[in-house]
């Protein structure tokens, strides 16, 4: 077993232990936390974050960051919701194509600005965060798309499915995760993303087309945010220009960083991110049970990000950085 594998296994094992300890502690205090019904609550909290986290992971691995995800989610959801409202006769499945397409386009714009002008992604996406949110208001005339316009079939996806009655969006989220796993571990381009993030100077020398990979990564990130957008409409049954997706990017970054994706690029794994998302879901589900006000959620997210950063640093300091570049 190579050093890289054992390291990643250790990281993921660490998160798994954290999840189990957390659930056990909450469960001892409030036994209803460990019931099947609560598992359903936890799983329903996570699909949007999990889908978007796969995109954010790729962007972070490539040594960039996407702060505009929440706004892309909002704008794609709004475009889709308005289509449902103004063209009720079109098939509802088409909404997925529209949402994903819109998201991909917006992500492509981010990527183009980053690659063409060699700008830092943090500033570009801070700009487009506001730009896309503003556009959402403009195209919607600041009006919400109400519940009655969202197709019933779409809303049903968040409530049930033919398979054990587990809501379909949970399957979609895990499906995306499996695709992301395949992409990162078993495709040439997926490995190139890691190569680029590990060493942006060396990667082009080995024939990796850095600009194309960067563009691709941002486009995927946007497309997944778009998918999360239509699932938002499914989950909550409305699209609001100011609420939908606001602050979403921070939850996603929190989940990804907890999942062991290094902010210095080149390191990250899908199982780790999935566990990070689940840990975040457990924390969110535990708050109301423990009587902690919802207002505390942001403070907890912030703390969790900082702790995850410290853990990340400790792992790097123990000489793991040197092992990172060994072949898997």
């Amino acid at each position: 077993m190579s050093a890289l594998r054992s390291l990643l296994l250790r990281r993921e094992a660490g998160i798994l232990v954290m999840i189990m300890l957390f659930c056990l502690a909450v469960g001892l205090y409030k036994p209803q936390f460990l019931t099947g019904n609560n598992l359903r609550v936890i799983l329903l909290l996570t699909p949007l974050i999990m889908i978007a986290a796969m995109g954010q992971m790729l962007v972070l691995v490539a040594r960039h960051v996407d702060l505009s995800m929440g706004s892309i989610l909002g704008l794609s959801a709004m475009v889709t919701g308005m289509m449902f409202r103004d063209m009720p006769q079109i098939p509802w499945m088409l909404g997925f194509a529209v949402a994903i397409g819109t998201g991909a386009l917006l992500g492509l714009i981010n990527g183009a600005l980053v690659t063409l002008f060699r700008l830092p992604a943090i500033i570009v996406t801070l700009g487009t965060l506001n730009l896309y949110r503003g556009l959402t208001f403009i195209i919607s005339n600041a009006r919400q798309v109400d519940r009655q316009y969202i197709p019933t079939e779409l809303k049903a996806m968040s409530q049930t499915s033919p398979i054990f009655g587990v809501p379909s969006i949970i399957f979609i989220a895990f499906g995306v995760a499996i695709l992301a796993y395949y992409f990162t571990m078993h495709t040439r381009v997926g490995r190139q993303v890691f190569a680029l993030g590990s060493n942006p100077v060396a990667a082009p020398l080995r024939g990796i087309k850095a600009n194309q990979v960067t563009l691709l990564v941002f486009t995927i990130s946007g497309a997944l945010a778009g998918l999360a957008g239509i699932l938002y409409a499914s989950r909550w049954g409305f699209v609001n220009p100011s609420n939908t997706g606001a602050g979403f990017e921070f939850q996603v970054i929190a989940a990804v960083v907890i999942g062991g994706v290094s902010i210095n690029g080149g390191v990250g794994s899908v199982p780790g991110v999935v566990l990070g998302v689940l840990l975040l879901g457990c924390v969110s589900a535990a708050l109301p049970l423990l009587g902690i006000p919802g207002a505390a959620q942001n403070a907890i997210y912030g703390t969790v990000i900082l702790i995850a950063l410290l853990i990340d640093r400790t792992v790097r300091q123990q000489g793991v950085l040197g092992l990172r570049r060994l072949p898997a």
Partner: peptide
Amino acid sequence: IIVTIGTLILYRGL
């Protein structure tokens, strides 16, 4: 960059 994103959420949350 990432630290102050974390503290941005933390301070606002507090």
